[in-house]
Design a protein around this nucleic acid. Sequence first.
DNA 1: GATTCATCATAAGAAAACCTTATCAATATA
DNA 2: TATATTGATAAGGTTTTCTTATGATGAATC
Lengths: 296, 296
Amino acid sequence: MMNPQWLRSFVVLAERGSFTRTADQLGLTQAAVSQHIHHLEAQLGPLLIRRPRQVELTPAGQALLGYCDDMEQAEKRLNLRLSGADDRQGEISLITPGSIGLSLYPLLLDLQASYPGLSVRHRFAPDQDVLEGVRNNHFELGLVTLKPDDPRLVACHFADEPLDLVVPATATVNSWEDLESLGFIDHPDGHAMASRLLSRVFPGNRGIRSIACKGFVNQVGLILEPVARGFGFSVIPRYAREAYAPGEAIRVVEMGPRVVDALWLIYRAEWPLSARARFVASELASRLTGETLVLV
Amino acid sequence: MMNPQWLRSFVVLAERGSFTRTADQLGLTQAAVSQHIHHLEAQLGPLLIRRPRQVELTPAGQALLGYCDDMEQAEKRLNLRLSGADDRQGEISLITPGSIGLSLYPLLLDLQASYPGLSVRHRFAPDQDVLEGVRNNHFELGLVTLKPDDPRLVACHFADEPLDLVVPATATVNSWEDLESLGFIDHPDGHAMASRLLSRVFPGNRGIRSIACKGFVNQVGLILEPVARGFGFSVIPRYAREAYAPGEAIRVVEMGPRVVDALWLIYRAEWPLSARARFVASELASRLTGETLVLV
DNA sequence: GATTCATCATAAGAAAACCTTATCAATATA
DNA sequence: TATATTGATAAGGTTTTCTTATGATGAATC
């Protein structure tokens, strides 16, 4: 087992050619340097020829010098990885619900165009899978709509996600009965969102389950097409609507109190968030909401 | 400065997931392993999360594991280089006089064809340059015609190089005067070789300098052409002649005592000759002379 | 809920490793 | 020949690493 101090002595000795000068440079005594080389030669055979003017490396000495260089390079790579000094390079792993994920998608593409060293692994999943993915260390960053109470996770307020009731442009909606006549266009988060918004707009209503389901699409970006064609209404996040609105054939119903979903950015609490993840999370928040993200 | 024993404990711990099992495997106590990890974390920050069933690596822990793998690979490369286990791979550096160099050239090409991992750096030079080249560690192997008396060099008898007096096929040579009538075709080692052979065949002759020089070629392989054309005679090593004899237009004069130059293989005495150099030197000797090379 | 077991952290002391000081041998220089 | 320089080596002081013993915590079992 080669002691790092021995190797350091060897490298400086190879460079300066004298035990005495090596000892001076390292702040040790000549005897210590002599012992270091003795230990190395005991393990590896003759490493240098002692000459009156300067030591000369044997081929084995040259091989060891090459090894020391390999070690130095490996250590530099390690330090770079640990320091996160370069926060615009490396992999970003992110897992989000589909609604906000769609809104972030073009922003992530813009970031990648600006910083080619970044590589983004982004997955759409419901809240539960987001929690698991971050907890199991498969993704460094996650977004959820409910703040988790888990000591292993940090949760920072990322953005507010207002919900919109969208109906066909030609529809008139003033009562619960109007919605029943239209019918509901569902999506994976459809029921949850509709329940939250409609219980505020129409208190005491019969529930979203009493409205006929006129369609289901598992991609939030495609849900506005059936609405525009008059097949029914839906409830989706405003960011999703703004990102993919087809144009004039839909309308947003502004009735009753505002309903806003808070979005929480989560990551593992037991170790520091990487510098690149910090950078990207901040950029996304500020490009989405214009506000500054406050990380723990 | 990271102690190699700390890193070893870390690698085994990452693999087995438990301090106690790691200690068992390494033949240490659990307390020692705990201290090793403590030292590493003091320098690098949290490397693992202690769980009741198994430790979990942080990203920093994973980075360190990558570094340990780099170290292991570097060490393997070093050991391979030091052991010379693979003696059919790597560079062969050889410096020889032109005459024997030409004989060896096709043999070296054959070896390279058989062992593509070998790379041959071969230079032709007079004896004095051969000695310098080996002594200065620019070439690992050298061939000389005079055994050196230098404690830094090992000299092994490599081969005997008989000298041939070659004349045009139509020439009649029985006396010194016949040689004077022909004239001498010279080459870089021409005078030395001619002196040695002719002082034996014609004792008391007037010396090679009394014979008109009819030509000079600094490549031994080309010297037989002017001889074949009848321009003069020359003295060259038999191996060179055999390697490049053009055919019927020259003749070897067999007169008087045999003159044989001994060839010495030299290399540096202060460290072991590399395994590949041993292998190649043995192959060359046996392919050239049919005899087994005896290395010190 | 109480008890037992397994596991890791930590304190203290023993053992090992590393360093310094002092001396000697070899070589080069004046 | 005398002196200076340099590296090796012995002996002892200092630091690091290891072991032994103990305590804290969490999980499993009764």
